[in-house]
Amino acid sequence: MSYPSDLLSSRAIIRPGKFALIPPQGLVDNVIPGFENCEISILASPKLGASFVDYKVTMHEGGKNTRGFGEEGVETFVYVIEGKIKAHTDDEAFTLTESGYLYCPPGKKMYLENMQSEDARLALYKQKYEPLDGYGEPWVVSGHANEIKGEIYQDMENVRLKDLLPTDVVFDMNFHILTFDPAGSHPFIETHVQEHGAFLLSGEGMYNLDNEWIPVKKDDYIWFGPYVLQACYGVGREPFSYVYSKDCNRDAKL
């Protein structure tokens, strides 16, 4: 850190209960017990209005989580934005490189460790699991998004969607990757009950958030609250892509 070289300013937009755009500049590190030699920032949380918690994690050389991430009644997910890590539960281990991910069901902790001298950058997530009587329980899922074929989205060949978790109803959430070629867009402005937390992986876009058109780009984070109007155009010279969470497969509660 040093003295500022210009006027203090930020692209961040925080609308509690509605949406948030959080660029990487200005993030403050949090001390989370169990994370060693890591920089970790809490992005979305119930204090913002979210029903889940999203973290941005940079694991330096030797960085790891020693206590385990997760707890009874809470499901967790990690996505590797950059680098190579070891991710394991008490009885399974996975090597995850860029685009690798691991989902752990409630009550099963995940342990994370950087496997290289360079930094590893992670998107980390947790939320309370909502059981569904009579349908069983979710299970550990791991994979690499780069090995999943993108499906044409809403009959538009310049927009592709990947599902990272099974569509089985025992899962009350999913993670997706949506990719827009330059000039690709949503087919309409969406309004829905689901929340999202999105880590922008590449490119640039113009995003409509609560009927405001806002420029966004790689390494930004967006939280979308329930019923917030949302849609985007991909702009620039490379595909605009992001990985995001979505709650699903449950009825609304009274």
Rank of each mutant, 00 (worst) to 15 (best):
D6M: 08
L8R: 05
S9K: 06
S10I: 02
R11H: 12
A12I: 09
P16S: 09
G17C: 05
K18E: 02
F19Y: 15
A20W: 00
I22R: 04
I22V: 12
P23Y: 07
P23C: 03
P23W: 02
P24G: 02
P24R: 13
L27G: 08
D29S: 08
N30V: 08
V31K: 08
V31Y: 15
I32W: 01
P33C: 10
P33L: 01
P33G: 08
G34H: 04
N37L: 14
C38K: 02
I40P: 02
I40F: 09
I40S: 13
S41F: 10
I42F: 02
L43M: 05
L43K: 01
A44Y: 05
S45F: 01
P46K: 10
K47C: 01
G49C: 04
G49F: 13
G49W: 00
A50L: 03
A50K: 01
A50P: 13
F52Y: 14
F52M: 08
V53Q: 08
V53I: 11
V53E: 11
V57M: 00
V57D: 01
M59W: 00
M59H: 06
H60L: 11
H60R: 13
G63T: 06
K64Q: 07
T66V: 15
R67V: 03
G68W: 05
G73V: 01
E75F: 03
T76M: 04
V78M: 15
V78N: 08
E82A: 14
E82R: 14
E82Y: 11
I85Q: 04
K86A: 15
A87K: 04
A87T: 02
H88S: 10
D90A: 11
D91A: 11
D91Q: 03
D91C: 11
E92H: 12
F94N: 09
T95F: 12
L96G: 05
L96F: 05
S99R: 04
S99W: 00
G100C: 05
P105H: 03
K108Q: 08
K109I: 10
N114G: 13
M115P: 12
M115H: 07
Q116K: 07
S117Y: 04
E118P: 03
E118G: 02
E118T: 15
D119E: 12
A120Q: 05
R121H: 10
R121W: 10
R121L: 15
R121M: 13
L122M: 13
L122R: 03
A123K: 09
A123H: 12
L124Q: 10
Y125N: 07
Q127F: 03
Q127R: 15
K128S: 15
E130W: 05
P131Q: 12
D133M: 04
D133T: 14
D133Q: 13
D133V: 08
G134N: 07
Y135C: 06
G136N: 09
G136A: 09
G136H: 13
E137D: 12
P138C: 14
P138G: 11
H144W: 10
A145F: 03
A145L: 02
N146M: 05
E147L: 14
E147F: 09
E147H: 14
